[in-house]
Design a protein around this nucleic acid. Structure first.
Length: 568
RNA sequence: CGGGACGUGGCGCAGGCUGGUAGCGCACCUGCUUUGGGAGCAGGGGGUCGUGGGUUCAAAUCCCGCCGUCCCGACCA
C-alpha cells in the first residue's frame, strides 16, 4: 500500500472528550470514527487490525474443530419468545416491527438460532460439534463508552458446543479455554482466566478472560501467588473468625441521629462494624427483600442476583423501605421481620451480640442473635471481597485489579436445547437434550484492549500479529530520485516476501511522516534518506524500543524478516 | 435513570455576560521559498452557529421545548 493512496486521517490533537487511551489514540491515529453513540466506523487501518484479530480467532477455532457459520443478525420475536428471553432481555434488545406488523429483534447473541439449527442433529453419533461465527451483535447498552470498549453494535466471535453429556461439555469447555489462551497470546494480551458469574446466560460455570487496564469496567480478585483469580461478582476470601461479644439479651436502645455504620460504632451502646448487621432493602423482580451482610462488608449486587435468581435487582427507594419496615434507611433491621424474604451472608451465620436497626427512626437493637432473632430464609455468599483479604487457597493477601473483559466462556447445559427442543437419541435409544456451551470474544473490544495495553506518548504500538502494517518505508525526500528508486525496489522485495508494508511516498516533511508512523504504531520503520543512502545504507527503527540501526541497503530485507520472525 | 459539561467550516476552539457585517489555530487549494522530527511568506475556498418555537427593528448571543454528544454514577452476558 502506498500512503499517498491510504485514507488515514490522523489528527494533530486527540479528541478532547475522550478519556480512555485506546479511544483517544484510535481516533487520533485514524483507525475509527464515531457515527453516533456506541456505533463506530472502522477506517482502513481499523479494519485491517480487526480482520487480523478475526483471522487469528478463526485459525484457533478451526484448530479445535470449529466450523464457521454465518447466521442472520435479525431474528423473529417467536424465536426469543420460545427461550423466554424476549422478556428477560428487556430494554437491552433492539426490537423493530416490519411492514407486516411482525415483531423482530436484532440479535444480541445467537444461542437460540444455533439451537434451532441443532434440531437437525438427531443422533449421539454426530456429536460433539463446535459451531461458530463472527457476526455483528446489537445491544442497546444503557451507556456506551470509551470508544470501542463498550458499544451498541460490534463484531463478536460466538461459538457453541453440542454434546451428549456433561463430560463432553467439560471437554469442549476445556478445548475453548485452551483456544482462548492461545488467541490472547497471539494478540499479545495478558489475559487472565477468572471465575465469573454466569449472569443472565444461566448454566453451571463460566470463565472470563480479563486484561488488566484502568479503562476496564470489571474488578477482578487476583492472588499474587497465582492460585486464585475471580471476578468480584463471584470471588470469595478467607476471613479471620470474630469472637462474639457477650450480650445475651436482645435490647432496644435510643440512638438519636445515628444513621450510619460508622456512627453506630461510636455511640453509647453501639458496636464495632464487624459486630453490626447491615440491612440492605432490595427490590427483586418487584418484591421487597432484605439482604444482610456484616456491618463492615459490602453487598455485591451480582451475587445477590445470582443467588436469588432474580432478573431485576435494585435498591429500594427510601419510601419503599419506610413502607416495608416502618423506618428510614439508617435505622433498618431484620429482627422479628416476617413476611419479607431475608437472604443473609455466611459471615453472619451463628453470630450473636450484634447491633442492628430497630425499624424505628433513632432506635437500634443490641444483643442480636441471628439464629434466635432473625428469620433467615436463605444463607448465601453476598459480600464483596476487599483488597488485602486472604486468598481462599493459600492465604496470601488478595489484589483487586481493574480489567477489561475480552472473552467469556459458559457451560450452558440444557437450558436452550430444552427450550428449542434440540435433542438426540443416545445409544440406549433414549431422547436426551443436547448439552450446550457458549463462548464469546468481542473483536473490536480485543482491538481496543490491545491499544490500551500497548501505547506510549507517541501513539500506538501494535504487536506484529495484528499491526495494520508490519513495516513502513519512510522516504525522507520523495523528490530525491535515488531515494525513490531505492524505496520502490525495497517495497517490491518486501511485498514479495508476503509482508504487509506501507510505502510512505507522500510529499510531506520528514517530521510529519515520522510522527504519523509512530502514532499509527507500525512496528518497524525503514527510513530512506539521502545521507545514509549515499553510503549505501538505510535506517531501521523499532517502534517499541525506539532504537535505530544503520543497515546496508542490500541487507535490510533480511534484517526486517529476522526482526519479524523474532517477535512473531 | 440521577449528576455535570457541551453542541459555532473537516478537526480543536473563541465569541455569548452587555443582541447589531461570524472569527482564530490546524487541515485544505494555488504560487514561491524551504526540506532528517508536525516549515515560512503571499493569495484563496469552505460555516442552515444542533433543532423547533418565542422575545426584538435586529438573535450564535436572551427565554422555553426538543434532539444529540461526552464524563461520573446507576445499570450492563
Amino acid at each position: 500500500m502506498r500512503w499517498s493512496n491510504l485514507h488515514t486521517p490522523t489528527l494533530r490533537d486527540a479528541p478532547a472528550d475522550a478519556e480512555a487511551a485506546s479511544h483517544k489514540l484510535l481516533i487520533q491515529a485514524g483507525f475509527i470514527r464515531q457515527l453516533h453513540a456506541g456505533h463506530y466506523s472502522l477506517l482502513p487501518l481499523g479494519q485491517r487490525v480487526a480482520r487480523k484479530v478475526a483471522q487469528i480467532i478463526r485459525e484457533e477455532m478451526d484448530a479445535i474443530g470449529g466450523q464457521e457459520f454465518l447466521l442472520p443478525a435479525m431474528h423473529p420475536a417467536s424465536l426469543w419468545q420460545k427461550s423466554g428471553r424476549w422478556e428477560i432481555m428487556g430494554d437491552e434488545m433492539f426490537r423493530l416491527i416490519d411492514r407486516k406488523g411482525a415483531e423482530n429483534a436484532l440479535g444480541m447473541t445467537h444461542e437460540e438460532v444455533f439451537a434451532q439449527l441443532a434440531l437437525e442433529i438427531t443422533s449421539y453419533k454426530t456429536l460433539p460439534q463446535i459451531w461458530y461465527q463472527i457476526q455483528t451483535k446489537f445491544r442497546d447498552e444503557p451507556r456506551p463508552k470509551s470508544g470501542l470498549l463498550r458499544v451498541r453494535e460490534f463484531a463478536m466471535k460466538d461459538s457453541y458446543s453440542f454434546d451428549i453429556d456433561q463430560d463432553g461439555l467439560d471437554r469442549n469447555f476445556d478445548l475453548h479455554h485452551g483456544a482462548y489462551v492461545r488467541i490472547f497470546e497471539r494478540l499479545g494480551l495478558p489475559a487472565v482466566p477468572v471465575d465469573a458469574s454466569s449472569g443472565a446466560m444461566g448454566g453451571s460455570g463460566s470463565t472470563e478472560f480479563m486484561v488488566p487496564s484502568p479503562a476496564g469496567e470489571d474488578d477482578v480478585v487476583i492472588c499474587p501467588s497465582g492460585d486464585y483469580a475471580a471476578n468480584v461478582e463471584r470471588a470469595s476470601s478467607s476471613l479471620p473468625a470474630v469472637t462474639d461479644r457477650n450480650i445475651p439479651e436482645l435490647a432496644r436502645f435510643a440512638t438519636p441521629g445515628v444513621r450510619t455504620i460508622a456512627a453506630l460504632e461510636t455511640v453509647e451502646g453501639g458496636a464495632p462494624a464487624d459486630h453490626q448487621i447491615k440491612t440492605m432493602v432490595m427490590v427483586l423482580d418487584g418484591s421487597v427483600t432484605l439482604a444482610l451482610v456484616r456491618g463492615d462488608h459490602q453487598l455485591n449486587l451480582q451475587k445477590l442476583q445470582d443467588v436469588s435468581g432474580a432478573i431485576e435487582v435494585r435498591p429500594a427507594t427510601p419510601d419503599e423501605a419506610l413502607a416495608a419496615l416502618g423506618a428510614h434507611p439508617g435505622s433498618l433491621g431484620a429482627v422479628g421481620v416476617t413476611g419479607l424474604r431475608i437472604i443473609a451472608d455466611h459471615a453472619l451465620n451463628g453470630r450473636q451480640g450484634l447491633c442492628t436497626g430497630a425499624n424505628e427512626d433513632d432506635w437500634h437493637y443490641t444483643g442480636v442473635s441471628v439464629a434466635r432473632d432473625i428469620a433467615v430464609d436463605q444463607w448465601a455468599d453476598l459480600r464483596e471481597v476487599a483488597a488485602g483479604e486472604a486468598c481462599p487457597q493459600c492465604g496470601s493477601p488478595l489484589d483487586i485489579v481493574r480489567c477489561i473483559e475480552t472473552g467469556h466462556i459458559f457451560k450452558l447445559g440444557t437450558k436452550y436445547s430444552e427450550a428449542m427442543g434440540a435433542s438426540v437419541l443416545d445409544p440406549d435409544g433414549t431422547q436426551r437434550p443436547i448439552v450446550m456451551g457458549s463462548y464469546g470474544i468481542g473483536v473490536e473490544r480485543a482491538v481496543a484492549a490491545v491499544a490500551e495495553t500497548f501505547h506510549d506518548d507517541r501513539g500506538l504500538q501494535w504487536p506484529i500479529s495484528i499491526a495494520p502494517f508490519a513495516a513502513v518505508i519512510t522516504v525522507v525526500s520523495v523528490k530525491d530520485e535515488a531515494s525513490m528508486t531505492a524505496a520502490e525496489d525495497l517495497y517490491t522485495q518486501i511485498r514479495d516476501h508476503g509482508v504487509d508494508v506501507l510505502l510512505d511516498d507522500r510529499d510531506a516533511r520528514a517530521g510529519v511522516k515520522f510522527a504519523d508512523a509512530e502514532l499509527i504504531g507500525i512496528p518497524f520503520r525503514i527510513t530512506i534518506g539521502p545521507k545514509a543512502l549515499a553510503d549505501g545504507e538505510v535506517e531501521f527503527t523499532d517502534r517499541a524500543t525506539g532504537l535505530t540501526d544503520r543497515v546496508g541497503q542490500a541487507d535490510v530485507v533480511g534484517h526486517l524478516l529476522a526482526a519479524l520472525a523474532n517477535q512473531r
